[in-house]
Computed example of a mutant assay.
Amino acid sequence: MRLNEISYNDAMPIDGYGPGFFRVGGQRHDGAVLVLPTGVSAWGAFEDRASLLKIADQIDVLFVGTGAEIAHLPTDFRKVMEDAGIGVETMASPAACRTYNVLLSEGRRVAAALLPV
């Protein structure tokens, strides 16, 4: 098996997660977070559409982590994101973290909006 070292350049990968927190770029963030290649901010969950609409021109895909288990997104939330041109992929938060890191390492324009596990 061949192993390759992953390089994120100046981007910040998700290092880990646990009950109620995420670790991004070596720093712990409690609660729901919005993770971009350039940094992390608190996210007010599905009611906080404004934070996501501000970055619509910076990303192609938004991974929405719904906590420990996958759950359906509110219909109006998905519609607002898609109307803004943001592709939305829903998954459990652990899977969203992994997928975000993989695409980030490829230099893709991605973000992750994550609810804690």
Rank of each mutant, 00 (worst) to 15 (best):
G16N: 13
Y17H: 14
H29I: 04
L3E: 13
A50W: 02
V35R: 07
L114G: 11
V40I: 09
R109A: 07
P94K: 09
L3K: 11
G67T: 06
N4Y: 12
Q27M: 00
Q27K: 12
L3F: 13
S7G: 14
A11T: 06
G85P: 05
A113P: 12
T75V: 13
T66C: 14
S41Y: 04
L103M: 04
T99N: 15
A95H: 15
A42T: 09
L73A: 08
A113D: 11
G65Y: 01
S51Q: 14
G26R: 08
R23C: 11
P19Q: 04
G87I: 01
G39I: 13
Q27T: 11
V102T: 10
V102L: 12
M12A: 02
K54F: 00
Q58E: 15
D83I: 02
C97N: 08
E47N: 15
S93A: 13
V35D: 04
V80T: 14
S41P: 01
R23H: 01
M91I: 09
G18M: 12
A32C: 10
A92L: 12
V24P: 11
E47D: 12
G44E: 12
S105T: 09
V88T: 14
K54R: 09
V33M: 12
E69P: 00
G65R: 02
M12F: 04
R78V: 06
G107S: 07
P116C: 10
N4L: 11
L103S: 03
R98W: 11
H29L: 05
D10Y: 09
N9H: 07
G107W: 14
R49S: 10
I14Y: 14
A42K: 11
A95E: 08
F77V: 06
Y8F: 15
E69F: 05
G39R: 07
L104P: 03
Y8R: 09
H29S: 03
E47Q: 00
M1R: 14
